[in-house]
Design a protein around this nucleic acid. Structure first.
Lengths: 279, 279
DNA sequence: AGTATGTTGCAAATTAACTTGCATTGAGGT
DNA sequence: ACCTCAATGCAAGTTAATTTGCAACATACT
């Protein structure tokens, strides 16, 4: 039984722009889509309902109703009524901003396993473990994650290069990419400038590419060899945090530590403490 | 806005046997009813679909669609994080590394509000809002958070300086600290080298100090003027993530946006998107 | 420029879902 | 036993949702 998200991934290559938008919208507010009609979905992003209907078929469902049923199955949680009532009552106690934030983060984290599974994580980790050198590409807020990953990878004995600066800088630094290297990219709200040429180059140079991203993930062109994506906490136009993608990063590091014979998790942390004590 | 259950109660007296059965069924499996059609519901207990349609009217809804929408609103939880995690973990035979990680993070986040409250957050935010310049001090993995905060504060129009490099560098950069400035520090496993002299200097220079930290927080010497701390996910000697402190950072930024008249949250994000589109 | 290919909106056709008038049934009252 | 009336099913009618052929448009490739 293939999950909806899996199907998105499978056909991501063959999707049209309008279909990408649709999927993005579904990922962004699955509940509303699961409860609404094809027209609702189409209208919410301003395409024709026919396009929604066609997307359902393209994804392998017999019709839109079947597609919606699958979305419901995957995204609408089954809860026993008793637990639900308890939950609702608990929320009622005048939350406060911090609790709201925490709640959002927790919700987003809880949904993470809808989008990323252990297998794809493992595959991605293998890529990084096998890589001779790792190049990291991140813009905007994602740079915080780039810094994090750079440190962690360094500590595991990887040669790491951050690709930064303007287009020319990135181009120059990216020239080093070759077969046996890996390119790790981050992308959130939209496809970053310089993404396309950089990943194009990586592909031609024979480097493996890996992207960690938010809902844009599936619409990135060219697609990376490995994609790990999940929607972030907070609404589309609201304050969005890096909690979810950071969890992906952490999981990735854990997976690497597990399969890389050179480092055990304990050593990793001991070494980390040692380094921090001296630096 | 009356809830569905309330309406059941109100009209309970005037209901026919078939209608009673229907309501019983709705209460027994609200999810299925909320996602299904009038016929589905009717068939599930062996009455005619027309009866379901009539029940909706009797309960005061304009039609069955309106009735179902109300059921969805009341019973399909917008978000059900805790249950979701529990579910995932329960059903999985040997949950898998990703779920383990997620669960740890969620638990740690859930505990966060035992350590940090809205009031101290607000006070800390005021400090940063009022500061002329903000200096950031972070070592090790915390640098990822420093990068994050630097970007966010910059975007809010603050003058920000990262204190990096070796002892001498930090000393030189820290000399700029004066009255009206704020020093934001991060500390996790232990008190960082250079922490003591730097914060000592800040105090003498009349700068306000703020520390975001893990469990070491309370044992830092000298103590900062404001301390926000909470234990991180994972055991003491295990792999520890930055999720919890990052949540504190995010909450802090949110609090700042709320009290700083110069920035609204929306503007902040809009601006952010704009910047990212151009950079 | 011209052509082939693919994408999307439009609108008509189809299908599913829901509503309602009418007929049947059965319970309670005369 | 007969009548009345509410409850329910039936089926035709109505409305909403979905599908699909077609044309317009865009794009990439001669």
């Amino acid at each position: 039984m293939t999950s909806v998200v899996d199907r998105f991934r499978e056909v991501a290559e063959q999707l049209t722009p309008a279909e990408h938008q649709l999927i993005k919208q579904i990922l962004a507010s699955p509940r509303d889509v699961a409860l609404g009609t094809a027209s609702d979905l189409a209208q919410s992003i301003g395409v024709h309902e026919a396009t929604a209907s066609r997307l359902a078929k393209k994804l392998g469902y017999p019709n839109y109703a079947g597609f919606r049923a699958a979305i419901q199955e995957d995204f609408i949680v089954r809860t026993d009524p008793a637990a639900r009532v308890r939950n609702t009552l608990r929320q009622g106690t005048e939350a406060g901003p911090l609790s709201d934030l925490i709640q959002q983060e927790v919700e987003a984290l809880a949904r993470l396993d809808q989008y990323v599974d252990d297998q794809s994580l493992l595959t991605a980790a293998q890529t990084l473990v096998a890589a001779r050198r790792v190049f990291i590409f991140a813009r905007g807020n994602a740079q915080a994650l780039a810094v994090l990953m750079e440190r962690r990878l360094r500590r595991m004995g990887r040669a790491v290069t951050q690709l930064g600066g303007d287009g020319r800088d990135i181009a120059e630094q990216g020239l080093g990419l070759g077969s046996g290297d890996a390119l790790l990219g981050f992308a959130f709200r939209r496809q970053p400038t310089h993404y396309a040429p950089l990943f194009e180059h990586a592909r031609k140079a024979g480097a493996t590419t890996l992207v960690i991203s938010g809902t844009v993930g599936p619409s990135l062109r060219p697609a990376a060899d490995h994609l790990l994506f999940a929607p972030r906490a907070g609404g589309q136009d609201a304050f969005q945090t890096l909690t979810v993608p950071m969890a992906i990063c952490n999981a990735l590091v854990l997976a690497m530590a597990k399969i890389d014979p050179r480092v055990s998790l304990e050593n990793l942390e001991k070494l980390g403490q040692l380094i921090e004590a001296f630096e």
